[in-house]
């Protein structure tokens, strides 16, 4: 059995976390990987119903998502989470806890605030900038980007297919999902590549 893992999306509201999580889910199902998506908006309707957006409530929400993701991943599944998860300390706490029995892959959806305000699909930034929504991450609440994410999706500049490709590639490299055989070096080719690089003094 392959090692279970948590694919933890983090990024500002509207940066593409939910879209990408659904796209990854489809691709993983195609490759036979058992997968569950814990979407931030949905979790707040059940698991974290009643919680608000104070720092304390946000931390509780993330810890709950992290806990469920940990249970799923330690049983060999892939748990994809898509919540803003603005605080580095809590994300790192979840990372440590998950890594006891499974792998943790942090996917940072990076997008400038200017771009998000311009897009503003849900109209939330407009309201937040007008002061109608309090504690809005990126506007009136802080967001701490990850320092060493396993994968960065530059969602303001690249297509979602490009971001998806990068995420799948990272999961393949970490040996968490089966490889797409048409897309890269096979094991035999890797041995040959190593030989050729050694011949030119690039691999000691």
């Amino acid at each position: 059995m392959r090692k279970g893992f948590v694919l933890w999306f983090t990024g500002l509201s509207g940066s593409g976390k939910s879209t990408l999580s659904k796209m990854v889910e489809e691709r993983l199902l195609e490759r036979g990987v058992p997968v569950e998506v814990l979407d931030g908006d949905e979790v707040r309707l059940n698991l974290s119903k009643g919680l608000g957006f104070s720092k304390e409530d946000r931390d509780t929400n993330i810890r709950r998502i992290g806990y469920v993701a940990k249970l799923l991943s330690r049983n060999g599944a892939c748990a994809i989470t898509a919540a803003i998860s603005p605080y580095r300390e809590i994300r790192d706490e979840v990372r440590k806890s998950v890594q006891e029995r499974a792998a943790f892959v942090e996917a940072y959806c990076e997008c400038s605030i200017e771009k998000l305000v311009e897009r503003d699909v849900k109209g939330l930034y407009k309201k937040a900038l007008a002061g109608e929504i309090a504690n809005f991450t990126g506007v009136s609440d802080p967001y701490e980007p990850p320092l060493n994410p396993e994968v960065v999706c530059h969602t303001g500049e690249e297509t979602s297919e490009a971001s998806l490709g990068r995420i799948l590639k990272t999961l393949e490299m970490m040996d968490l999902i089966p490889k797409d055989p048409s897309a890269e070096y096979s094991a035999e080719e890797e041995a040959e590549v190593a030989k050729r690089l050694k011949d030119l003094g690039y691999l000691g």
Binding site: A103, V105, E150, V151, A162, G165, R166, K169, T170, M173, M174, D175, A183, E184, Y185, E190, V193, A194, L197, Y202, L203
Partner: peptide, 21 residues
């Protein structure tokens, strides 16, 4: 470079065309 380490490991990865971002 011609080589990289795979995320969270010391295993060598050989970047190829699909790695171009």
């Amino acid at each position: 470079g011609f080589t990289d380490l795979k995320p969270q490991s010391y295993n060598i990865h050989f970047p190829s065309y699909p790695d171009l971002k």
